[in-house]
Lab assay of single mutants.
Amino acid sequence: ILQTYRAIANYEKTSGSEMALSTGDVVEVVEKSESGWWFCQMKAKRGWIPASFLEPLDSPDETEDP
């Protein structure tokens, strides 16, 4: 089962193997590399994304803190 994550910042791809993101995009993580790059898919797009640009979809938003 794939894990679902949300983009927390815009990411512009710098090579053909990467995938561009916009803040709020929801992606499915296909593979996690120890290098800190994750292979993700979103609709018909697939590519590598730095893991630091993603957060788990089920994590609470910062605005929901008590």
Score class of each variant (00 low, 15 high):
Thr63Asp: 15
Pro56Asn: 04
Gln3Pro: 09
Val29Arg: 01
Asp58Ile: 09
Ala20Arg: 06
Trp37Asp: 03
Asp65Gln: 13
Thr4Arg: 14
Glu34Asn: 11
Thr63Phe: 12
Arg46Thr: 11
Thr14Trp: 03
Thr4Gly: 07
Glu64Asp: 14
Glu28Thr: 10
Gln3Tyr: 11
Val27His: 00
Pro66Gln: 05
Thr4Asp: 05
Gly36Phe: 01
Ala9Tyr: 09
Gly16Ile: 14
Pro60Leu: 12
Gly24Gln: 03
Ser52Trp: 09
Glu55Arg: 09
Glu31Val: 07
Tyr11Trp: 11
Asp65Ala: 14
Lys45Leu: 09
Trp38Met: 10
Ala20Gly: 07
Leu2Glu: 15
Asp65Gly: 13
Met42Asn: 12
Asp61Tyr: 10
Pro66His: 08
Ser33Asn: 13
Arg6Lys: 12
Ala9Pro: 00
Ala20Leu: 03
Thr4Cys: 08
Val30Cys: 07
Tyr5Pro: 01
Thr23Met: 13
Ser33Asp: 12
Leu21Ala: 02
Ala20Thr: 14
Thr14Gly: 10
Lys32Ser: 03
Gly36Asp: 06
Ser35Gln: 07
Phe53Ser: 08
Lys45Asn: 12
Phe53Lys: 10
Cys40Asn: 01
Thr23Arg: 10
Thr4His: 12
Gly16Glu: 15
Ser52Tyr: 08
Glu18Thr: 09
Gly24Trp: 01
Ile49Tyr: 02
Ala51Val: 04
Glu62His: 11
Tyr11Ala: 02
Leu57Ser: 10
Lys45Thr: 13
Met42Gly: 12
Phe39Arg: 06
Leu21Met: 06
Ala44Asp: 15
Glu12Leu: 06
Ala9Asn: 12
Ser52Lys: 14
Ser15Lys: 14
Met19Ile: 07
Ser17Arg: 10
Ala20Pro: 05
Gln41Val: 07
Gly24Asn: 06
Ile8Ala: 00
Ala20Lys: 10
Trp48Val: 02
Asn10Cys: 08
Ser15Cys: 11
Pro56Lys: 12
Trp38Asp: 00
Cys40Trp: 01
Asp61Gly: 13
Gly16Asn: 15
Pro60Ala: 14
Val26Ile: 12
Met42Pro: 00
Cys40Ser: 02
Ser52Met: 11
Trp48Ala: 00
Lys32Gly: 02
Ala44Pro: 09
Glu18Asn: 07
Asp58Ala: 13
Lys45Pro: 01
Leu21Asn: 00
Trp37Thr: 04
Gly24Val: 00
Ala20Gln: 06
Phe53Leu: 15
Glu12Lys: 11
Ser59Gly: 15
Gln41Phe: 04
Arg6Asp: 01
Ala44Gly: 14
Leu54Ile: 05
Ala51Leu: 04
Lys43Gln: 12
Glu18Met: 05
Glu12Pro: 10
Asp25Ser: 03
Tyr5Glu: 02
Pro56Cys: 06
Ala51Pro: 05
Arg46Ile: 05
Asp65Met: 12
Arg46Leu: 06
Ile1His: 03
Ala9Gln: 07
Lys13Arg: 09
Lys13His: 07
Ile8Pro: 01
Ala9Ser: 11
Glu31Leu: 07
Pro66Ala: 15
Ala44Val: 06
Met19Phe: 04
Ser52Pro: 06
Ile49Thr: 07
Phe53Gly: 04
Leu57Ile: 15
Arg6Cys: 05
Ser52Cys: 10
Met19Tyr: 02
Met19Asp: 01
Pro50Leu: 03
Arg6Ala: 03
Leu54Gly: 00
Glu28Ser: 07
Cys40His: 01
Pro50His: 06
Lys32Asp: 01
Lys13Ala: 09
Glu62Ser: 13
Gln3Ala: 12
Pro50Glu: 04
Leu2Ala: 10
Gly47His: 02
Ser35Lys: 07
Lys13Gln: 09
Phe53Asn: 10
Gln41Trp: 02
Gly16His: 14
Ser15Asp: 12
Gly47Cys: 03
Ala7Val: 11
Gln41Pro: 00
Asn10Arg: 06
Gly16Met: 10
Lys43Leu: 05
Ser59Ala: 14
Thr14Ile: 10
Pro60His: 14
Asp61Thr: 14
Glu55Asp: 04
Ser15His: 13
Ile1Glu: 15
Glu12Trp: 06
Met19His: 02
Asn10Met: 05
Tyr11Lys: 04
Lys43Glu: 15
Lys32Asn: 02
Thr23Asn: 08
Pro50Ile: 01
Leu57Pro: 03
Val27Leu: 04
Val29Trp: 00
Asp58Pro: 14
Ile49Arg: 00
Tyr5Trp: 06
Gln41Ala: 08
Asn10Gly: 06
Ser35Arg: 08
Met42Leu: 11
Ala7Thr: 03
Tyr11Asn: 03
Leu2His: 15
Ser33Met: 10
Ser17Ala: 12
Glu64Asn: 14
Val27Ala: 02
Phe53Pro: 00
Glu62Phe: 10
Ile1Gly: 09
Phe53Ile: 15
Arg6Ser: 03
Glu18His: 05
Asp61His: 14
Glu64His: 13
Pro60Trp: 08
Lys13Trp: 04
Phe53Glu: 03
Ala7Pro: 01
Thr14Tyr: 06
Glu64Trp: 09
Cys40Pro: 00
Gly24Phe: 02
Gln3Gly: 15
Val30Lys: 09
Gly36Lys: 05
Asp25Cys: 03
Asp58His: 14
Ala20Phe: 05
Ser22Phe: 06
Ile1Tyr: 10
Val26Pro: 02
Asp61Leu: 13
Asn10Gln: 06
Gly47Leu: 02
Ile49Asn: 01
Cys40Lys: 00
Phe39Asn: 05
Gly36Ser: 03
Gln41Thr: 10
Glu31Arg: 11
Phe53Thr: 10
Met42Arg: 12
Asp25Trp: 00
Pro66Thr: 10
Ser35Val: 05
Glu64Pro: 12
Thr4Pro: 06
Arg6Leu: 04
Phe39Ile: 03
Phe53His: 14
Tyr5Gln: 01
Lys45Ala: 12
Ala44Trp: 08
Gln3Thr: 15
Glu64Leu: 11
Ser59Ile: 13
Lys45Ser: 11
Trp37Gly: 02
Pro50Gln: 04
Ile49Leu: 09
Glu62Tyr: 10
Gln41Tyr: 04
Asp58Thr: 11
Leu2Arg: 15
Leu57His: 11
Ile1Thr: 12
Gln41Arg: 11
Glu62Ile: 12
Lys13Gly: 10
Trp37His: 05
Ser59Val: 14
Ser17Leu: 09
Thr14Phe: 07
Lys13Met: 09
Ala44Met: 11
Asp25Gly: 01
Gln41Glu: 07
Asp58Lys: 14
Glu64Lys: 14
Met19Cys: 03
Tyr11Leu: 09
Thr63Lys: 12
Tyr11Phe: 14
Met42Glu: 06
Glu55Lys: 08
Ala51Phe: 06
Glu18Phe: 04
Trp48Cys: 02
Ile49Met: 03
Asp65Tyr: 10
Lys43Asn: 14
Met19Asn: 00
Asn10Tyr: 04
Trp37Ile: 07
Ala7Trp: 01
Ile1Asp: 12
Leu2Ser: 15
Gly47Ile: 02
Leu21Thr: 03
Lys43His: 11
Trp48Arg: 03
Ile8Glu: 02
Met42Ser: 12
Tyr5Asn: 00
Tyr11Asp: 01
Ser52Val: 09
Ser59Arg: 13
Trp37Met: 15
Trp48Thr: 00
Asp65Arg: 10
Cys40Gly: 07
Ser59Tyr: 11
Lys32Pro: 03
Ile49Phe: 05
Thr23Trp: 06
Ile49Trp: 00
Val30Arg: 08
Cys40Gln: 01
Ser17Met: 11
Glu64Tyr: 12
Phe39Asp: 03
Ser17Asp: 14
Glu28Asp: 07
Ser15Thr: 12
Pro60Asn: 14
Asp61Glu: 14
Lys43Thr: 08
Ala51Lys: 09
Gln3Lys: 15
Glu12Asn: 11
Gly36Ala: 03
Ser15Val: 07
Glu12Thr: 11
Ile8Thr: 13
Val27Pro: 02
Ser17Thr: 12
Glu31Ser: 10
Glu55Phe: 04
Thr23Leu: 11
Trp48Ser: 02
Gln41Asn: 05
Thr63Tyr: 11
Asn10His: 06
Ile49Cys: 15
Glu28Val: 06
Gln3Phe: 10
Glu12Tyr: 10
Gly47Tyr: 01
Glu64Met: 11
Ala7Asn: 01
Asp65Ile: 13
Ala44Ile: 04
Ile8Gly: 03
Arg6Val: 09
Lys32Thr: 05
Glu12Gln: 08
Tyr11Pro: 01
Lys45Asp: 14
Val26Glu: 08
Cys40Arg: 02
Lys45Arg: 13
Ser33Gly: 14
Ala51Cys: 13
Tyr11Met: 07
Glu12Arg: 12
Pro50Gly: 02
Asn10Pro: 11
Thr23Phe: 11
Asp25Glu: 06
Ser52Leu: 06
Glu18Cys: 06
Trp48Lys: 02
Leu21His: 00
Met19Gly: 00
Tyr5His: 05
Thr23Tyr: 11
Gly24Arg: 01
Pro66Arg: 06
Ala9Asp: 14
Tyr11Val: 07
Glu62Leu: 12
Pro60Thr: 14
Val30Ile: 15
Thr63Glu: 14
Val30Gln: 08
Lys43Ile: 05
Thr23Pro: 07
Pro56Thr: 04
Leu54Asn: 01
Thr63Gln: 15
Val29Leu: 08
Trp48Ile: 03
Ile1Pro: 07
Leu57Lys: 07
Thr23Glu: 15
Gln3Cys: 13
Trp38Ser: 01
Glu28Met: 03
Asp58Ser: 13
Thr23Asp: 07
Trp48Phe: 06
Cys40Thr: 02
Ile1Ser: 08
Lys32Cys: 03
Trp38Tyr: 10
Cys40Asp: 00
Asp65Glu: 14
Gly16Val: 14
Gly47Phe: 05
Thr14Pro: 09
Ser52Ala: 12
Ser15Trp: 07
Val30Thr: 10
Thr4Gln: 15
Asp58Leu: 11
Leu57Cys: 15
Ala9Leu: 05
Ser15Arg: 09
Ile8Cys: 08
